[in-house]
Simulated assay, not measured.
Amino acid sequence: MGPLRFGMNPDEVSAVLADMTAEAQQFVITHCRDGRQVREVGRCWKSGLFLFYSRDERLQGLAVDGLRGPQVLAEGVPLTGRVPSEVERWMTARAAERFPEDDFEFGYLGTGIPCSWSLGLVVSVQRMADHLVTRPVIFAEHVLDDPRHTLPQEAWTIY
Rank of each mutant, 00 (worst) to 15 (best):
A95V: 04
W45K: 13
G81S: 07
D11Q: 13
D102S: 15
E101P: 01
M20T: 05
W90H: 13
E101W: 10
R39W: 02
P100H: 11
A129S: 12
E154F: 00
T150Q: 12
G35F: 03
V77L: 01
F52M: 11
A24G: 10
V16K: 15
G66V: 07
G112V: 12
L79S: 02
R94F: 11
E97R: 15
G107H: 09
R55C: 01
G48F: 08
V125Q: 14
T134E: 08
A15M: 06
T92S: 10
S14T: 13
W117D: 06
I113M: 11
A95F: 04
V77D: 00
G107E: 11
C115S: 03
R94M: 06
P136Q: 09
G76K: 10
M8I: 03
D145I: 08
A155M: 02
E154I: 00
Y53E: 04
A95H: 03
E88Q: 13
M8H: 03
T150H: 07
E86L: 15
S54Y: 03
R58S: 08
P147L: 05
M20I: 11
R98M: 10
F106S: 00
Y53Q: 02
G7I: 14
W90E: 01
S54M: 04
L121I: 04
A22W: 12
D11T: 09
A18K: 15
T150G: 01
G69H: 08
G107Y: 06
V13F: 12
I29D: 00
D146H: 11
M1E: 09
S54H: 04
I113P: 00
L62R: 05
E97I: 06
L151F: 02
P70A: 14
L51P: 03
I138N: 01
T30A: 14
E141G: 09
F52W: 03
G76M: 06
I158R: 13
V83I: 12
S85W: 08
